[in-house]
Simulated assay, not measured.
Amino acid sequence: MRLLGDVKYNENRTCWKEHNISRRIAYRIILIGFTMIFGPLVVFNIQKTKYLQMLTAIFRLLAFILMICIALKMLVTDGVRGHPAVVNVYDIPSLFGACVYSFMCHHSLPSLLAPIKHKSIVKQILSYDYTLICSLYIVLAITGIFAFEYVEDLYTLNFLPYNATTDSLFSTFLIGIEYFLSLFPVLTLSTSYPLIAITLKNNLQTLFLDMSQYNSYSILTRALCPFLSILLPFCITYFTENLSILVAITGSYAGVGIQYVIPVCLVYSSRVTCSELLGSGIVNQFQSPFQSNIWLVMVLVWSVLAVFLVSINLFS
């Protein structure tokens, strides 16, 4: 049992007393419904996602601004409720899973670089972009840890509309904002889930099927990859109820491989290939300031350290 805002949380606590449905059962019912609604989209291919990504970006930015404003309002009206330790060395291992997840902002790099016509300003644009990302992270974290006595693993759960009253239009508006923040992970997941699942399906097809002979495969074989792409995530989320452990495992094991190890291998391989094809006489005026292989080694060392510390935190 743990605190959820000012209300004690228990996975066996009843959601709807008249139906005697616990939170665990309600969660699994909603999960099954979500998978049945969005799972079939995996069989399709989504080529143009411009407006879908714009809508997701607007939702995320709006949620960030609202959470910061509400936390600031709580600090002004209620004062400081959270009293975090200045330094806690023992919690560093648990930090690494979240740190790996924070690097998910790098997955937007291709979509940021491709539309830029004049590549000479790439460094300036990226510096502005990551400065904005870092600023939002810091402001959101600082306001949250001091505004709330207990900060949930999923930060939006701190804004659940408990003891809400609708005695005025302004109160109704605030309740609407709180419901929006509570449903924010669902809104973003509903847009990103089909894209990620389709990408996983395409990767599985490329790995295990000969795409030149794809039409000759049976319907059962062609349906196997879409089914597998939604089966494993469904099983993990169905039997996992501790969000911190889920973040640590997916962020520090799968995340390290996807975000650190594989990119390092791709960068090293591409550099060797370009050197063999083009030679060393051509100078790229847009070359990265991190072109030394020392940076690749540092990234690998960081990934090993992250996995080591999170493993200590999980099994200690």
Rank of each mutant, 00 (worst) to 15 (best):
R2D: 12
K8S: 03
K17I: 09
H19N: 14
H19R: 13
N20Y: 07
N20I: 05
I29F: 14
L31H: 01
G33H: 02
F34G: 09
G39V: 05
V42F: 10
N45K: 14
Q47Y: 13
K48W: 01
Y51Q: 09
T56Y: 10
T56Q: 14
I58A: 15
L62D: 09
L62W: 02
A63W: 07
F64V: 10
I68W: 07
A71V: 01
A71T: 03
L75P: 02
G82H: 04
Y90I: 04
F96R: 06
Y101I: 10
F103M: 14
M104N: 10
L109T: 14
H118P: 01
S127T: 12
Y130M: 00
Y130W: 05
G144T: 14
Y155I: 15
L157E: 15
F159Q: 02
S171K: 13
F173M: 13
L174S: 11
I177K: 04
I177T: 07
L181G: 06
T188C: 05
L189Y: 03
L189M: 12
T206D: 15
L209P: 02
Q213P: 01
I219W: 13
A223P: 03
L224Y: 08
F227G: 03
P233K: 03
C235E: 04
N242Q: 00
S244T: 03
S244V: 06
I249E: 09
S252C: 06
G255D: 12
G255I: 10
I258V: 14
Y260K: 11
I262A: 06
V267A: 14
S270N: 11
L278Q: 12
G281R: 05
V283T: 12
F290A: 02
S292V: 02
L296Q: 09
V297S: 09
L300I: 12
I312Q: 13
F315G: 11
